[in-house]
Nucleic acid binder design. Structure first.
Length: 525
RNA sequence: GACCCCAUCGUCUAGAGGCCUAGGACACCAGGUUUUCAUCCUGGUAACACGGGUUCGAAUCCCGUUGGGGUUGCCA
């Protein structure tokens, strides 16, 4: 029995983003592969958007894709007291402080610990020197160090970093005279009772430290502490910030591995410090590459196509979308792409995840979907066709048995259920004509004469596939047209389109009356 | 600006120094099968961002450049 516990932690907004659900899929696959637990945590702290309706949409999307979760799901709003308690505890232990910068009132700020070496992964990089803009005073208080670098044009470029970034800090002027030593005033500054403003500073000398962790996808990642800042964990209005809530909940849920989007790597360093401050061991991390749109840019609200529900309503199968999404940023390492869920579970490892972003290709998804549709049991296929046809104007009046026959005939050439709407040409009385096809196949006068003769022949033949074929053949042979070469004009005349199912089957399906009416109509156009 | 990450055909990817005159899939093009449409089969076009190194040998290791992305104290 594996001890792996992973979670999917979406905020329910009414739509599940394709990038989010991909993260859910990878978490699920990892958990199932390892024989661990896949947990759900609904981050519903945005009361405006996190309506019961939005939560239902989320659950439906997960169920549709077969992402079943273990144990009771956690709702983040239920953890509010725990989050506040954690913040109070950090303040009481001197690991966080209140600060009024920017907001209205005091926020709670988590301090990157001064004794950072206590945290596994933190190490000394070595001595560091920074030339700073001499006109800009260096200010130091418990919130950190503010200074300005010098741009190529000699202008000041303001920087801010946490206090912990500057171990052994000593500040010198242009002549090399020491102006300030942090060690002399450390206690007061950390306590918030002391602060310093240093004019005419030219150089910052200190010991640089960094925090390092091993990402299961991206490998070793590190960040110098002097490029980090203390983190607000409770807003001035008392609401816990994502970082605190997230870490607290992962501790509460016993998360062992966090598998999430690339955009969280920077947060990870801060979260590791938070885990330790709260007396917990940080989980292992795996950061997945982003999914980008057709322009190669990150999906934004404007990209309407990027929600799970859209793919469902456009007629993609859950299994096909699931399969396709696993191939975005991951591959089994062999030349197979269409994989069953069982195969995916057994093949999936985080180590085989890609570290660069991936672009969705609707055409490839469509192709894969077509493969899944082709091998569906006909009855199941017909049932889903009905679902997708239900809203179509011609469906209500359609004969169920006739619909059934059409669906079976069309299965092998359907790639997405949205194509069901094109079947209107088999259901309405007179179909709409594709003018390009009509111009190509129905314009010629000799063609029209032959069509008239075909119509005559179809009036009396046996109206089944064999009879229709024989009747048409007889006419075309008399007209000295090569076998089959007259099928396209007939197809366009009868269905209005140049593509469709086998012609004789189609005519048999339509029946004699409708076929003749359509031929007549085509010739009168 | 600073910090961090990324970089193989149009797209998704294989590739962990010699198996690579770079393989597969989608898309595209050309043939073929099918009396027609779709399917299917065969073949083809097409990539290691650029420049330096290391090495007998680099798509694979190192450095730089360029390009893209992420983050940058009260979004999640």
């Amino acid at each position: 029995m594996s001890s792996v516990r992973v979670r999917f932690a979406p905020s329910p907004t009414g739509n599940v983003h394709i990038g989010n659900i991909r993260a859910a899929i990878f978490n699920w696959l990892f958990a199932r592969h390892e024989g661990g637990k896949f947990l759900l945590r609904v981050e519903d702290t945005d009361l405006e958007r996190s309506t019961p309706e939005a939560v239902r949409t989320l659950l439906e999307s997960m169920q549709w894709l077969g992402l079943d979760y273990d144990e009771e799901s956690m709702y983040q709003t239920s953890q509010l007291a725990a989050h506040r308690q954690a913040a109070e505890r950090l303040i009481a232990e001197g690991k966080a402080y209140r600060s009024a910068k920017g907001g209205t009132g005091e926020a709670t700020v988590f301090r990157i610990p001064w004794d950072a070496e206590q945290v596994p992964g933190v190490s000394v990089v070595g001595p560091a020197e920074l030339d700073v803009h001499q006109e800009t005073p260096v200010t130091i208080d418990r919130r950190g160090v503010n200074y300005a670098l010098v741009s190529a044009k000699g202008k000041p470029m303001p920087q801010a970093a946490c206090l912990a970034g500057f171990r052994d800090l000593e500040i010198f002027d242009a002549q090399g005279t020491s102006l300030f030593r942090l060690a002399d005033r450390l206690n007061g500054i950390c306590a918030g009772t002391d602060s310093a403003v240093i004019e005419h500073a030219a150089k910052l000398c200190y010991t640089r430290r960094q925090i390092q962790y091993t990402d299961m996808v991206k490998g070793n990642l590190a960040k110098p502490l002097d490029s980090m800042q203390d983190q607000v964990i409770v807003r001035s209005d008392g609401a816990p910030v994502f970082h605190l809530a997230n870490v607290c909940d992962d501790i509460a849920q016993g998360t062992t591995h966090i598998v999430r989007g690339d955009d969280h790597v920077e947060n990870t360093y801060r979260h590791i410090f938070l885990f330790h401050a709260l007396g917990a061991t940080p989980p292992r991390y795996a950061h997945l590459p982003m999914i980008v749109n057709a322009q190669g840019k990150p999906y934004s609200k404007r990209d309407g196509d990027a929600y799970v529900g859209d793919f469902r309503s456009k007629g993609f199968l859950a299994e096909a979308l699931f399969n396709y999404l696993t191939l975005l940023g991951w591959s089994p390492g062999e030349d197979r792409e269409k994989l069953t869920r069982a195969e995916l579970i057994s093949l999936f490892t985080l180590e085989r995840c890609q570290s660069s972003s991936a672009q969705m290709d609707l055409r490839k998804l469509t192709n894969l979907n077509g493969q899944y549709l082709a091998e569906m049991a006909p009855d199941a296929f017909v049932a889903l066709c009905r679902e997708h046809a239900a809203a179509l104007p011609w469906y209500a009046g359609a004969d169920p048995a006739y619909f059934d026959r059409v669906a079976r005939l069309m299965q092998s050439r359907t790639k997405v259920f949205s194509q069901v709407s094109e079947w209107d040409c088999l259901f309405v009385d007179i179909p709409a004509y594709d003018e390009k096809a009509a111009a190509k196949f129905l314009k010629d006068e000799s063609v029209r004469q032959t069509l008239a003769r075909v119509a005559e022949a179809l009036k009396t033949c046996t109206f089944d596939v064999a009879g229709i074929e024989a009747a048409i053949h007889a006419v075309t042979q008399a007209a000295r047209i090569e076998q089959g070469h007259f099928n396209q004009p007939i197809r366009v005349a009868v269905t209005g389109r140049a593509v469709g199912a086998g012609l004789y089957e189609t005519l048999e399906l339509l029946g004699r009356d409708r076929t003749l009416r359509r031929l007549e109509h085509a010739l009168s156009r």
